Simulated assay, not measured.
Amino acid sequence: MAVTGRSERDLAARLADSEFVRVAPRAEGESIAAAGVLLGALAARSIPFQARVVPLTEDLPEEATVPIGFADGFAADRPAGAVAADLARELDHDPEPGLALASRLLGGDDPETDLERRTGVGIPTADLADGLAHSTLFHASFSGEETAAGAELAELADDDRMVASLAALDAVGSESASERAATAIERALRPHATPEGPFETAEGLADVLDCLARDAPGIALALAMGHDVRTSALDAWRAHSKAAHSAIREADTGRYDGLFVARIAEGPVETVARLVRNFRSPEPVTLVVSETEAGAAGDEGIGEAMAGAAASIDGTGGGTLSRGVAQFDCPPEAFLEAFREAMT
Rank of each mutant, 00 (worst) to 15 (best):
H134R: 01
H134L: 01
T194A: 07
A216T: 12
V208E: 08
A177Y: 01
L153R: 14
A202V: 03
D207C: 10
L212R: 10
E155R: 15
S174C: 13
G131I: 01
A171E: 01
A157F: 14
D160T: 11
A182V: 15
A188K: 04
A188S: 07
A171N: 11
F199M: 14
D158P: 09
H134M: 01
I185G: 03
T147A: 14
D159C: 02
P198L: 06
I185P: 13
L205A: 09
E152P: 12
A216S: 13
T147K: 13
H134D: 00
E200G: 06
A188V: 12
A133D: 00
A154V: 15
R214F: 09
L212N: 05
A168M: 11
E152K: 06
V163H: 07
R180I: 03
E175A: 14
F138R: 05
S143K: 00
E179I: 10
A154Y: 14
G131R: 00
E200S: 06
A216E: 10
S174H: 10
E145K: 11
A216L: 05
E179A: 13
L166Y: 09
R214P: 09
D158H: 02
T147L: 13
V163F: 03
A216M: 15
A154C: 14
A140I: 04
A164L: 00
D160N: 12
L153T: 05
L212K: 11
H139A: 02
A171H: 12
L205V: 08
H192L: 08
P217I: 15
S176G: 12
A184V: 08
A213E: 05
D210G: 12
G173Y: 07
L166H: 11
G150H: 03
